Computed example of a mutant assay.
Amino acid sequence: MSASAIEFVDVVKRYGSVTAVDTISFSIQRGELVTFLGPSGCGKTTSLRLIAGLELPSAGTVRIAGQDVSTRAAADRNVGMVFQSYALFPHMSVIENVAYGPTIRGGDKKLAIERGHEILTMLGLEGLSTRLPSELSGGQQQRVAVARAIVQQPDVLLFDEPLSNVDAKLRRRVREEIRDLQRRFNLTAVYVTHDQEEALAVSDRIIVMSNGKIAQIGTPSALYDRPSSRFVADFIGDANLIEGHVDNGRFRAEGLTLPLDMPGPDRPATISIRPERVILEKSGAGGKITHASYLGSRREYRIETVFGALLVSAPITDVAFQAGDEVGVSLPVGGYTLLVNESELPSARVSAQ
């Protein structure tokens, strides 16, 4: 029996001739918060619905807590879900909403209400139990939706774009609350978003999807610092992508030679350089600033070089440059990543260790 909280083995989901999820495999451990991240139509929401039982796989196996649930309906899985709209019953009070799940499943209503009050207290909502959802702020409604899911003691808690209805200024606070709750209750949680910053902030690991397949799985820092492909490098944060070739343990492009930790065979290649890793020097040549922006916490520059255009993000404490300035450009060892060609990526059956 699998020790994983969730496991997909060669899972496929088709809608007629369209393959929404294409032979993906991964495992999620108990107590982890794992995010599906990708552009619209990549298969992330379909994957979440396959865990919830709102969709059944066309092929492959879905396991929850070691049990094969591939053919089980949503009602037969011990899974809680927080929807984008929160889906609170407008005519019910907060405590009635929270206690609804256990009660409708035949549980003792009194015990469900007692447990609901305990969870509301933990979430800082103890004084709001008699209010209607319309009398709550967006952040409070979101916490009620989480409480309603937690009270059922699910094996897995699913979040479907939970911050899409939260004001932009509140998103940072609400996502911190979600992460704190997940850790406090030691919940196994799966989170869906298209927002890269949100995914980096809340996740233990991220599953990046593209065209129904898994592009890469890893921790936030691993995906940001060591993307495996052009798609991942370009999708997560800003990246400068430079075309060249590997030659004798070095990456070479016009006017640029960089040592490689993992040389690989001589071949055409691409490197990824994050904007904050580029070092600008007042003395020296190699680049010309074409655009300079002051962004409060940092300065951002566009620079033309012989090996291509660069986006550079510099601390506000560094020397300020202006458009037209000639600057030296250097890259620290380890400040760039050699990307794997898309055709060389491993199959979608990716280990989630």
Rank of each mutant, 00 (worst) to 15 (best):
M1F: 06
S4D: 02
K13Q: 02
Y15I: 00
G16S: 00
T19D: 09
A20N: 03
I24L: 04
F26V: 04
F26R: 10
S27Y: 04
R30I: 03
R30P: 09
V34D: 07
V34Y: 06
T35S: 14
T45C: 05
T45S: 06
L54C: 00
P57K: 05
P57R: 00
S58E: 01
A59D: 03
I64A: 08
D68N: 10
T71W: 11
T71E: 00
A75H: 15
A87C: 08
F89P: 02
M92W: 07
E96A: 09
E96V: 10
P102S: 07
K109A: 07
K110L: 01
R115C: 08
L120V: 03
E126Y: 02
L132W: 12
P133C: 07
S134D: 10
A147M: 08
R148Q: 03
I150G: 07
Q152M: 15
Q152K: 15
Q153A: 04
V156Y: 05
V156G: 01
F159W: 04
S164G: 06
D167H: 12
A168K: 03
L170C: 11
R171S: 09
E176V: 04
D180Q: 12
D180M: 10
R183D: 03
T188D: 12
T188P: 11
V190Q: 04
T193L: 10
A201W: 01
S203K: 00
R205E: 06
R205G: 15
I207Q: 14
V208I: 08
M209L: 13
A215W: 00
I217A: 13
G218R: 02
D225I: 12
R230W: 09
R230K: 08
V232S: 14
A233K: 13
N240M: 10
L241E: 11
I242N: 05
G249K: 01
L256A: 04
I271A: 02
R277K: 09
E281H: 15
A285I: 08
K288R: 13
T290A: 10
H291Q: 13
S293L: 15
G296W: 07
E304W: 09
T305P: 00
S313Y: 12
S313W: 14
A314Y: 12
A320W: 06
Q322L: 10
A323Q: 04
G324V: 00
V329S: 02
S330D: 01
P332I: 00
G334K: 05
